[in-house]
């Protein structure tokens, strides 16, 4: 019987004693190699393979086709069938993922606001889906975590763009589910007239009002000037501030009037100022300049679907802020 290895060499000798064993491969390896070549030819024919200038060979029709659902520019859902390509495959996988997400979205849509927040499983979905939705649409102004964007520098009358902090418990336009939903759907435009409602406050009056505003939240201030400012604040013919900020200074959410009595300073950075004089200065700058900027909160009602707005509302209310 022949042996697997007879320790024979190729018979060739290099450098006096260097020889090479013959350990032949099994013949079927060669056939396996030819088979891979045949396979590759079949593969070229069946699947996209060769570049042809600006196009490429598409493979055998029907063998490798992928069907997926795409959304056209005008929102139509159309079914498309094409030859195999990675983009179509991605679309198909996206369709499948959207199907899974839809079950949850439907559940959110069908559940009352208060009940969503009570259900930890639903909230888990809201947290993850809401985070993406928020990052895609809201984070440009409100930042990824909802910290908002503080105003610029009121002293140089550079108020900058202002996006309220959504992570704290103060809500400029109201913090109930319905109010938040209305804010997202319809957008909001903040406005504060320069130099009081009539626009005619004198320099001295402005200083007095600034001191009164500081007194509302217990910041250091000049009590006498604050007393004078109190009157100007409440007199519709002079300051008229109470129209939006309400008589007690707590603000009218429907007008977007900020609460001046709490510790949250979103627009004017009062706590950040070193001394009482500086605090008065930043407030004066705000009263002199007013707030009349075009960067308003846009209407999302036309861009997002109702269930997406509902999801965002719950996300903002419960995951970020802790609304009212």
């Amino acid at each position: 019987m022949a042996q697997q290895s007879n320790n024979q060499t190729t018979g060739h000798v290099w450098d006096d004693d260097l020889q090479e064993f013959t350990n032949p491969l099994p013949r079927w390896w060669l056939w396996a190699f030819y088979l891979t070549i045949i396979f590759s030819v079949v593969y070229w024919l069946m699947y996209p393979a060769w570049p042809l200038g600006s196009s490429y060979t598409k493979g055998v029709n029907g063998v490798n086709s992928i069907t997926y659902v795409a959304t056209t520019k005008d929102g139509q859902q159309v079914e498309k069938t094409t030859h195999w390509n990675t983009r179509a495959e991605l679309m198909k996988e996206t369709n499948a993922a959207a199907g899974v997400q839809k079950q949850w979205l439907d559940q959110v849509a069908a559940t009352a606001y208060g009940d969503i927040a009570k259900n930890p499983d639903l909230m888990q979905f809201v947290n993850s889906a809401g985070k993406t939705l928020f990052a895609d649409n809201c984070a440009a102004c409100h930042q990824v975590g909802g910290a908002g964007h503080e105003a610029g520098n009121p002293q140089t009358n550079q108020v900058g763009f202002f996006a309220p902090n959504l992570a704290d418990d103060y809500w400029q336009w109201g913090g109930t589910y319905d109010e938040i939903s209305a804010t997202i759907t319809g957008g909001r435009t903040g406005f504060m007239p320069a130099k009081g409602l009539a626009g005619a406050l004198t320099d001295e009056q402005i200083t007095n009002v600034a001191n009164y505003v500081l007194s509302l939240s217990g910041e250091p201030h000049d009590a006498d000037k604050a007393k004078l400012g109190d009157e100007i604040f409440h007199n519709p013919a002079e300051g008229g501030c109470l129209t939006c900020h309400s008589a007690d200074g707590k603000g009218v959410p429907s007008m977007g009037g900020l609460n001046l009595t709490d510790k949250v300073w979103q627009w004017v950075d009062v706590p950040g100022q070193a001394d009482a004089a500086a605090k008065v200065d930043v407030l004066r700058a705000a009263i002199i300049g007013g707030f009349n900027h075009v960067e308003a909160m846009p209407k999302w009602g036309t861009r997002l679907k109702p269930e997406q707005i509902k999801l965002l509302t719950v996300y903002v209310h419960d995951s970020l802020g802790g609304g009212k």
Partner: peptide, 16 residues
């Protein structure tokens, strides 16, 4: 811990 923002001040002056 949620790091964006690291903390916020609340209306009462409390920290969250």
């Amino acid at each position: 811990q949620v790091r964006q923002p690291l903390y916020v001040k609340l209306e009462t002056g409390a920290v969250r």
